[in-house]
Nucleic acid binder design. Structure first.
Lengths: 338, 338
DNA sequence: CCCGTTTATGTTATCGTTAACATAGGCTGT
DNA sequence: ACAGCCTATGTTAACGATAACATAAACGGG
């Protein structure tokens, strides 16, 4: 057992390799000009000493952290996870690392998180949604780094946008049902004020119903977002109890839609025979359940990939004006609706 | 539009507030001794200037980053996400932030990731699983920070452990089936060598079957881990085609088990009447599907929570020897098995 | 073969915060 | 009233890498 002596620094490596610290620094960068022999000797020396590059020092001196800060509502959500995956893959090649934080669907938590993240001096920041506290907005505006809002098309963007209209996506679903002669349509979502995307979807539902001259009052609040399969099932139970003549139901996500489907199965209610069900998000479950679930794919991974590409473009100076990349969600009619 | 002048530093804040930079530094810490009047003036000045604390400098000087590095196989997995959530919640109170990386179920990718993470000088590192490349192992051993292996009970731990035996958990499932007089049992998992926890589960299955004197050759390889619902369904299809007398099947996860269930539903194969199905992980879907899925809950969130608590203890010096916290997974018999 | 250019390396100062030490003034108890 | 002890603040130097500048050696073309 050796004593836990102080960790070796570049100076130690330099001494052992017989070069200056600056040369060691160069040897650890990809592009820098160091002769092969010297680099090899340096890496050997570093390995012998068990040297581990200290990026805290590098970050300060070079004023670069190679972090990209990302906030998502929840880690435990396949859609947001897909976006993070798309981002991560697109940024990895450039050595950019994601600094991830979850807001728990709360814009005040988001504000706190953004402050924490900005202190780490990321190269760019990606936030989910276009609704923020005034202070959060101010921090983002003054951060001096590229800001990308995703999963939404904010009316007044802070910087760049890679998103889609949640309201328009749900409108397409309403249109789909109406074209099938289904008019008594309900909406199952979370309690109004927390999940802003869920709220947008509900608003889109109401607007679309009214545009068709239909009653938009079949609204079931299933609990605090994100609503679970279980909450979807419970909401469906209440819907069947109170408004049994409902012909179709749009759920805020595929998870709640699947829960709703199982409630119908337990009660022997035929889907889509007696009631049609639609979800949102194109989760895998909707593609494989029996029956499969009609849903909307907002291409979350694509959002991440395009966001990553945009960040690289901006950091390269190849994009100097705020960009808005609009993703077009796709309606996927499946067995759960007719 | 103001010019993007240089971001203000503590020195700027200090000048405006009429104090020394050190006092500003103190004002930004929780415990430091600064009079209320001074702190207020400083925070006001900071706000006026739009000052954002620079943790890159703080990290270097104080030799603390308040990062805890975490590697998980995949971001897009509810079980690992739960562990991260448990960790995150337990660490937040102490101002520790998670630095997350995904290995994509690949120990070579894990090695690369561990190196990247250690360069950021985390206060502790949490890895999923107990199998690592030799170099990864060496890096962890020499990192000089607490190392916690999770989701496994390694034979030769590097440091601390918060995990469970995947093999033992599956053995309990085999025992469960055997006690119900089911003996022709199959296992659906991923291809052998990648997902080490999946491999452990398969090995546990084989060992348990042999311990009962039963045939342990009904093994279906469903593809590259992590295997999806779809792959679970496909595997079940092959199983029904090739070994139609199978009485029970244990799937490597609830997701593949649900896929397998849907394949049975599509084929009109009664579950559990003709075949029993079990999964692993206690995903929400298993609790709500019709029929509900027999599964094993390894308490992923608890793993995260206990890991967080352990890290705090170690950083406080209240735990100086390597700890092994063993979680006991719970078998949950449900409708999909009899 | 000489001068302009490139390549490999060295030197110096610095990024912005804070640990460590120092000190003035106020307070406490006897 | 004074030693002893807090409390609030200041001063100095350092964390470990690297940007910016400098230079010696190698190269190359006419």
């Amino acid at each position: 057992m050796t004593l836990p002596r102080k960790a070796p620094t570049m100076a130690d490596v330099a001494r052992l390799a017989g070069v200056s610290p600056m040369t060691v620094s160069r040897a650890f960068k990809r592009d820098a000009s160091v002769s092969d022999a010297t680099r090899e000797a340096i890496l050997k020396a570093a390995d012998d000493l068990g040297y581990v590059f200290d990026s805290t020092a590098s970050n300060l001196r070079s004023q670069r952290t190679d972090f990209v800060a990302v906030t998502i509502p929840s880690i435990n959500n396949a859609n947001f996870a897909d976006t993070v995956r798309g981002l991560s893959e697109g940024l990895k090649a450039r050595g950019l690392q994601i600094l991830l934080g979850a807001t728990d669907y709360d814009i005040f938590e988001e504000e706190r998180l953004i402050e924490q993240l900005l202190r780490r001096r990321p190269e760019a920041i990606v936030v989910t949604g276009g609704q923020h506290t005034p202070r959060a907005r101010r921090m983002l505006e003054n951060a001096g780094i590229p800001v990308i809002e995703t999963w939404d098309l904010p009316a007044a963007p802070i910087g760049h946008v890679v998103g889609f209209s949640n309201a328009a996506a749900v409108r397409a679903m309403v249109d789909h049902f109406v074209s099938r002669r289904l008019t008594r349509i309900a909406f199952i979502g979370g309690d109004a004020d927390r999940d802003t995307r869920g709220t947008d979807r509900r608003a889109g539902f109401i607007a679309a119903m009214q545009a068709h001259g239909l009653d938009a009052t079949r609204l079931i609040a299933a609990g605090v977002p994100p609503i679970s399969m279980r909450e979807g099932a419970d909401a469906m139970g209440r819907l069947l109890d109170t408004l049994p003549d409902t012909e179709a139901v749009i759920c805020v996500s595929d998870l709640s839609a699947f829960g709703a489907l199982t409630e119908c199965q337990r009660r022997g209610v035929d889907v889509p025979g007696r009631i049609s069900i639609a979800g949102f998000g194109d989760y895998e479950i909707g593609a494989i359940s029996v029956p499969t679930l009609t849903t909307i794919n907002p291409f979350p991974r694509e959002i991440g990939a395009q966001t990553a590409a945009l960040i690289l473009k901006v950091l390269d100076g190849a994009q100097t004006t705020p960009a808005t990349l609009s993703i077009l969600p796709r309606l996927l009619p499946r067995q759960s609706s007719r």
